[in-house]
Design a protein around this nucleic acid. Structure first.
Lengths: 196, 196
DNA sequence: TCCGAGTTGGACGTAGTGTCCAGAGCGTGG
DNA sequence: CCACGCTCTGGACACTACGTCCAACTCGGA
């Protein structure tokens, strides 16, 4: 528990919220701990490791992956590892549902067309400014008619997107918002001063 | 290794072929073993765990999940767990690409009227430098051993990603590449002078 | 040993940043 | 109608960070 806890937490964190990690004590046949539980089991419950009888261990003492079905119908993929010294049984249950759905969609829709080369990255911060401002224009009307709250909202969004870490961003934002550079900094100070 | 091997194999098996599990020896700073390798590293390579310095450990001694980018452009989610007695570092790298594609499709079809509520792209240009450099380290070895061509290649990649449009990027790159700021500009001029 | 390629730290001029303020514009209430 | 408060403005300013340049240094090869 002391020893394997971090590893279990790591697995649970990596796959959250789609994986449940269960650590068993094979000697006492009880559940020691559960990370990110969704099967309803909790620490102290009986392990019921008998189901492993029907599965053959592979090399490395790993059982599975083998399928499971939860009471609510969710399908899982599970693997179990026998850990030694101290003895423990590590069981990872992965909710296969989201991936099955995604796979089905991909198979149905993505098969004929190009496999999406890679979006790469945005070095068009200039465009992003116009993009954010533009979408706000659709909500709030023309930029010239905006009030202070509108500007604050948009600036807050731009700021938390890290736009202002880019060189020449502030003047560009001022231009897009049809305000002066001074105002941008003033409003920015206001936005930042009230959050942290 | 004897002790953690089964757990590592279990994780690798569960997520195969999309996850790579690396077990490090923090004392010797070497890779002890790799399950389902796809980043090119293998047992005996230096660990280069320095990149963890920039990540905060959560509770349970787990780092991450934090993003990484491979040299070929694949995006990864990684978690790292510090294991004690015996000391070891467990690192799981999950190829996020398939999930991102699936998620994008699901989002596109499940929300037909999505007004793009949150673009929220990478505001971690700082991290991107370390990602690019880090993934190159895996291909080319430790940064101290690089020659000029290696630096040129990495700088070219960083430059075309627009990294240098960000404030304080140049000194940060210099730090990551273990060269002086002057050299960064010199090499950068070379990279830029031969392309356009 | 000398040479040249490459790197370095420092110096320096400049672009761009962030702050400040006096004043203009404007709606509101007296 | 004026006075007041609120907001934006344009310019001034100090300052940070950028990008360039150069003399000095290191290091491997002729």
């Amino acid at each position: 528990m002391e020893r394997y806890g971090p590893a279990c937490a790591a697995i649970a964190a990596l796959l959250s919220p789609h994986a449940e990690v269960v650590l068993h004590d094979p000697d006492e046949d009880v559940v020691l701990a559960v990370w990110n539980p969704f099967s309803g089991r909790e620490a102290g419950d009986p392990s019921l490791l008998g189901e492993l009888d029907e599965v053959r261990p592979g090399p490395d003492g790993v059982f599975g992956p083998y399928p499971k079905v939860l009471a609510d119908g969710r399908t899982l993929s599970s693997v179990t590892a026998m850990l030694r010294d101290p003895d423990a049984v590590l069981c990872v249950n992965l909710d296969r549902g989201p991936f099955e759905q995604a796979a089905a969609l991909l198979a149905a829709f993505a098969a004929p067309v190009a496999p999406r080369p890679e979006p790469l990255f945005e070095h068009d911060w200039f465009d992003r400014v116009n993009e954010v401002v533009g979408s706000s224009v659709r909500l709030r009307g023309p930029v010239e008619r905006w009030g202070k709250p509108d500007r604050l909202a948009v600036l807050s969004e731009l700021d938390s997107s890290g736009v202002f870490a880019v060189r020449r961003a502030a003047p560009e934002v001022a231009r897009a918002l049809k305000v002066s550079r001074s105002t941008v900094y003033a409003l920015l100070a206001e936005v930042r001063g009230e959050k942290p």
